[in-house]
């Protein structure tokens, strides 16, 4: 048994998230971030008019998607709802979480507000718990500068274990660096190795017990530690999502 992560990912994109890839080569990028961090600005900047956003642009309710090309590669960019957290305490958080966890994006960009890094890092740490291929886009650097905020980028990269790209999305500053970084990850030239959270011993012990039970059930592309943590966290919706995915046509196909 065992359908590869990639192909089950494509079917899921189709079934659950209503996203159609043009070809297998198209690279899927998820764009996550807190509200008011310039997420839509970056999305618009990257995709220009090649986007599809329901019939009314503006605040993201469903996934907005757009395409762009960089160095002969086709990219599909999915704009997720702006949230402080993806622990699924609201509909928006559930959408963002399910896409990052089950939609299997090739890369996730987390866009953050440099003027309040601490609260934004909360989301970054939650996302690096799920997936390794994360790039941190440190946006609104101009505002940070105005407010006398200085961020040690190198140190931040080291602490988090992922690339950190300072940008001013509204002027397009740093966007090329961002694209280049993504390109390098896609090409396998660089590989993020994010810092992983560890919790109290009591929690870690429980994680181990449940993870052993769980890992046999799930496709290897799904992160069983993270799902276990959500279960311990008391998240009921994750079980619903797992059941949905186990029962989805793409998952049954693999038995045939």
């Amino acid at each position: 048994m065992g359908l590869t992560g990639q192909s089950s990912g494509i079917s899921l994109l189709n079934n659950k998230f209503n996203i159609t890839k043009k070809s297998d080569e198209q690279i899927v990028i998820a764009l996550a971030g807190n509200p008011n961090t310039g997420k839509s600005t970056l999305f618009n900047h990257l995709t220009g008019l090649n986007q599809h956003t329901g019939n009314w642009p503006g605040k993201t309710v469903c996934n907005a998607q757009g395409t762009f090309k960089y160095k002969d590669k086709d990219y599909l960019l999915v704009d997720l709802p702006g949230t402080y957290s993806i622990l699924a305490n609201s509909v928006e958080e559930e959408i963002a979480r399910d896409f990052i966890c089950f939609g299997n994006p090739d890369i996730t960009i987390v866009i953050t507000d440099s003027t309040c890094l601490e609260r934004n890092l909360n989301l970054v740490l939650q996302i690096t718990e799920i997936t390794d291929n994360v790039v941190l886009c440190l946006n609104l650097m101009d505002e940070a500068k105005r407010k006398g905020i200085d961020i040690d980028i190198k140190k931040l990269e080291k602490s988090l274990g992922i690339p950190v790209i300072p940008t001013v999305a509204r002027d397009g500053k740093g966007v090329n660096d961002l694209l280049f970084t993504i390109h390098n990850i896609v090409e396998g030239i660089s590989k993020p190795t994010p810092y992983k959270m560890t919790y109290d011993d009591s929690i870690e012990a429980l994680v181990k017990e449940i993870e052993d039970n769980l890992s046999g059930l799930l496709d290897e592309s799904l992160n069983s530690r993270w799902i276990t943590l959500r279960l311990i966290d008391g998240d009921k919706s994750i079980l619903k999502s797992i059941k949905e995915i186990l029962n989805s046509p793409s998952y049954e196909e693999r038995e045939v």
């Binding site: 402080y84 305490n89 609201s90 609260r119 909360n122």
Partner: peptide, 8 residues
């Protein structure tokens, strides 16, 4: 409670 925690 969770929402308040998530807000920081």
């Amino acid at each position: 409670r969770r929402r308040l925690l998530d807000l920081g």
